[in-house]
Simulated scan of single mutants.
Amino acid sequence: MQNQILKAGQTFPDIKVKTEDGREQALVDVHNKATTAKWTLVTVYRGQHCPICLKYLNELNLFTGRFNALDIELVAVSADDKQQLAQFKDKGLEVSFPVVLELQVEDMKKLGLYISEPTSNAETDHLFAEPALFLVNPKGKITMIEIANAPFIRPDIDRFVSGLEYAMEHNYPTRGTHSY
């Protein structure tokens, strides 16, 4: 399967991941979104081997109050397994939002993510996704997308949250929906 190109306004794909305690769940529960007023910000990170991811997720956690004020739930996901998440926490990951596991390559492709091979076994033991952000509205539709092919390309969190605050206050439309 080749990577798909997700479009703004599209329904977020039905993707199953594992929780830290081993339960399977939807990455974004698109079927339940019609009954809740919560938005979801999905943050795809490379894995425990990435010090930039560690810093970014911990910084993202500093903004949870502002995300909560906007009714945005945060969730982070990678291809890492439970043991690798434990190693990430040992390295200093301290977040209050869920970090889910075992994003499969087929699902990375559904999301249109860039996928990388490890440079060595010291880095990691599996293919992994490069960073991405997906803002999903309460109806399960993707309203904002940021997909990167390298760990250095990520939005400034303060600017991003300020933009979200503006967008929510002014009922900013989903952009980038023109088809050519």
Rank of each mutant, 00 (worst) to 15 (best):
E117T: 15
Y114Q: 08
I115G: 02
V75Y: 01
T64Q: 11
S78E: 02
P131F: 02
I157A: 13
N58A: 11
F88C: 10
Y56I: 12
K7Y: 12
Y45V: 06
K18V: 00
N32I: 01
H178A: 14
K18A: 05
R159N: 03
G140T: 05
N121R: 10
T19F: 00
S162E: 15
S116D: 08
V28N: 00
S78C: 06
H126P: 00
V136P: 04
H49Q: 14
H31K: 15
I72H: 01
V105N: 04
V161W: 03
T11D: 03
E146S: 13
K110N: 07
K38Q: 12
D125A: 03
D90H: 06
Q2N: 14
F88H: 11
Q4P: 00
Y166K: 14
G22R: 06
I147Y: 07
T124M: 08
P118V: 11
S78A: 10
S179V: 11
V105Y: 00
D29E: 03
P138I: 07
D158N: 06
K82G: 04
Y180G: 10
A79L: 03
I5T: 15
M108P: 04
D156N: 13
D21Y: 01
I145G: 04
L54E: 05
L6A: 08
H178N: 12
K82Y: 05
N121P: 03
D14A: 15
A76V: 01
R23M: 08
K110P: 00
E73C: 10
D21K: 04
L57W: 05
H170R: 11
D14I: 14
A129E: 00
E169S: 15
Y172V: 12
E117G: 11
H49P: 07
G140A: 10
Y166T: 11
K141E: 12
L6S: 07
K38F: 14
E123Q: 15
K38T: 10
T43I: 05
Q84A: 14
